[in-house]
């Protein structure tokens, strides 16, 4: 395997782990999070600080980084419990931005320069092993009766609460587990690229991961993996075809999100959509007047 192929493999694996985390939060539990890069960044920064400043072994730093991200997930989870849908999305976005501003201004995180000289400890085998493990654990959770309570919260929170489910706890659990996943991914990333700066906490990074989850299909684990592979590998392949593509990459992300929502909101490998069954592809409704029935269905 060439070094380049190896790089693509590693980045794909890292993205898969992070995207699986977001898949649990947004895809299965239905809590749209726009601050996933914040958790990723916490994992990356904490683990990198531990290996560079405290000379901790990589494995330990990775674990501590992941749990710090999980703690951040808990902190974000609490105030966001009272928020639904759009409000929650904006609040998580705010969390990501606050993290970025912190990383940009704190002394210990190295400000805009970030952290350099992180030891190279992430190898392909580590990433593959952890990605497979992450997938299997999440699958186990989703397939269990406990996992069904997460999906119930997505399907109808009021009904889930009325059925005796502590929906607040379910949502916080989703945020903590999802954040831990992102934290592991962040730690792996820092120890592969060996240099991190506040740009890894940017809003666009959160959107990139969200695109992967949405493309594959909200609420589908194989879909999440497929979406991640497509969106990580394709730009690399296209880059070798034409350098212009990478310039248009984010424009394409934007169009992709719109087209997907219009034509196939359940994603390529369509698991469940967000509520409202009997989905009529939106493009069929173009130019159509809103009927009373539409309103009644809201």
């Amino acid at each position: 395997m060439s070094a380049y192929q190896q790089q693509i493999l590693i980045l794909t694996g890292i993205n898969v782990i992070s995207a699986l985390g977001l898949s649990l939060i947004s895809g299965f539990t239905g809590q749209l999070s726009l601050g996933h890069a914040g958790f990723f960044g916490v994992g990356a920064y904490i683990s990198a600080l531990l290996t560079t400043k405290a000379q901790l072994p990589f494995a330990l730093a990775l674990v501590v980084g992941a749990f710090s991200a999980g703690l951040a997930g808990l902190v974000v989870g609490f105030p966001t419990l009272r928020l639904k849908g759009d409000y929650l999305a904006i609040a998580t976005l705010g969390f990501g931005e606050i993290m970025r501003v912190l990383a940009l201004n704190l002394k210990i995180t190295g400000g805009p320069v970030g952290i350099r000289g992180i030891p190279h400890s992430t190898w392909p085998s580590t990433v593959i092993l952890l990605a497979v493990l992450a997938y299997l654990l999440l699958k186990k959770l989703i397939d269990s009766h406990v996992g069904k309570t997460f999906i119930a919260v997505r399907e109808d929170e009021t009904a889930a609460e009325a059925m005796g489910l502590d929906t607040a706890r379910v949502k916080i659990s989703a945020f903590v587990i999802g954040a831990i996943y992102a934290g592991v991914a962040g730690g792996l990333y820092a120890h592969y690229i060996r240099y991190i700066n506040p740009s890894i906490l940017g809003f666009m990074k959160s959107i990139e991961i969200l695109c992967m989850v949405v493309l594959g299909g909200m609420g589908s684990l194989p879909g999440t993996v497929a979406g991640t592979v497509i969106l990580t590998v394709t730009p690399e392949l296209l880059r070798s075809v034409s350098p212009l593509i990478s310039q248009y990459r984010q424009v394409i992300y934007g169009v992709l999100l719109i087209v997907l929502m219009l034509c196939r909101p359940q994603g390529l490998f369509g698991g469940a959509t967000y509520k409202r069954e009997r989905h009529v592809p939106a493009w069929k409704l173009w130019g159509r007047r809103e009927s009373a029935n539409d309103i009644a269905q809201r």
């Binding site: 849908g85 759009d86 666009m204 969200l210 934007g254 169009v255 929502m261 967000y274 409202r276």
Partner: peptide
């Protein structure tokens, strides 16, 4: 076209528009 869809679907579409215009 998404007026029948859930709020999250519309929000994601709006995010798409935002990213598209920006870039």
């Amino acid at each position: 076209p998404l007026r029948r869809s859930s709020r999250i679907t519309v929000l994601i579409s709006a995010i798409g528009v935002s990213i598209f215009l920006q870039n």
